[in-house]
Simulated scan of single mutants.
Amino acid sequence: MSKDTPILIMSASGHTLYANSAALRAIYNAQKGQPAMHDYTSADDYIAKTHGWLEEEPMMMPAINTYQDAIAHKSLDIVSNMDAFFHQASARGVTSMYDALINQMYVPYLEDYLEARRLPVRLGGALYCETLKAAQALPPYRQPDYYLDLYLGHVKIVSDGSNQGLTGYQSEPYSVILEKDHACGIFNFSDPVAYQQVVDEVILEKGWPIMIHANGNLAITDTISAFRSALEKYKGPELRNRIEHCSLLEQSGINEMEALNISPSFLIGPRGVLGRCI
Score class of each variant (00 low, 15 high):
9 I>K: 08
9 I>A: 09
10 M>R: 04
10 M>T: 11
10 M>P: 11
10 M>E: 10
10 M>K: 05
10 M>H: 06
10 M>C: 10
10 M>Y: 05
11 S>M: 07
11 S>G: 09
12 A>L: 12
12 A>G: 08
13 S>E: 10
13 S>Y: 04
13 S>L: 11
14 G>K: 06
14 G>S: 08
14 G>I: 08
14 G>M: 05
14 G>T: 06
15 H>P: 12
15 H>T: 12
15 H>F: 09
15 H>S: 12
16 T>L: 12
16 T>M: 15
16 T>S: 14
16 T>G: 12
17 L>E: 02
17 L>V: 13
18 Y>W: 12
18 Y>M: 15
18 Y>G: 15
18 Y>S: 15
18 Y>K: 13
18 Y>V: 15
19 A>Y: 08
20 N>E: 13
20 N>R: 06
20 N>A: 13
21 S>E: 08
21 S>M: 11
21 S>N: 13
21 S>L: 12
21 S>P: 08
22 A>E: 08
22 A>Q: 07
23 A>S: 01
23 A>P: 04
23 A>I: 00
24 L>V: 04
24 L>K: 01
24 L>P: 00
25 R>M: 12
25 R>E: 14
25 R>Q: 13
25 R>T: 14
26 A>K: 04
26 A>M: 15
26 A>E: 14
27 I>N: 03
27 I>Y: 02
27 I>S: 02
27 I>F: 01
27 I>C: 01
28 Y>S: 00
28 Y>P: 01
28 Y>V: 09
29 N>I: 09
29 N>T: 03
29 N>W: 08
30 A>T: 14
30 A>M: 02
30 A>Q: 05
31 Q>E: 14
31 Q>P: 13
31 Q>A: 07
31 Q>L: 11
31 Q>V: 11
32 K>R: 04
32 K>L: 14
32 K>P: 03
32 K>M: 15
34 Q>R: 08
34 Q>G: 13
34 Q>Y: 01
34 Q>N: 09
34 Q>C: 10
34 Q>W: 02
35 P>Y: 02
35 P>L: 03
35 P>E: 02
35 P>Q: 03
35 P>I: 04
35 P>H: 01
35 P>M: 03
36 A>V: 05
36 A>I: 06
36 A>F: 07
36 A>N: 11
36 A>Y: 03
37 M>Y: 01
37 M>Q: 04
37 M>W: 00
37 M>C: 01
38 H>P: 11
38 H>S: 14
38 H>L: 14
38 H>D: 14
39 D>Q: 12
39 D>T: 05
39 D>A: 07
39 D>I: 07
39 D>R: 05
39 D>V: 08
40 Y>D: 01
40 Y>T: 00
40 Y>M: 14
40 Y>A: 12
40 Y>V: 07
40 Y>C: 15
41 T>G: 11
41 T>V: 06
41 T>F: 07
41 T>Q: 09
41 T>D: 13
41 T>S: 11
41 T>R: 05
41 T>M: 06
41 T>W: 06
42 S>P: 00
43 A>Y: 03
43 A>K: 00
43 A>L: 03
43 A>Q: 08
44 D>N: 09
44 D>L: 05
44 D>C: 04
44 D>R: 03
46 Y>H: 07
46 Y>S: 13
47 I>E: 03
48 A>C: 06
48 A>H: 07
48 A>I: 06
48 A>D: 12
48 A>S: 13
49 K>H: 07
49 K>Q: 14
49 K>V: 09
49 K>P: 09
49 K>M: 12
49 K>E: 13
49 K>S: 12
49 K>F: 10
49 K>T: 10
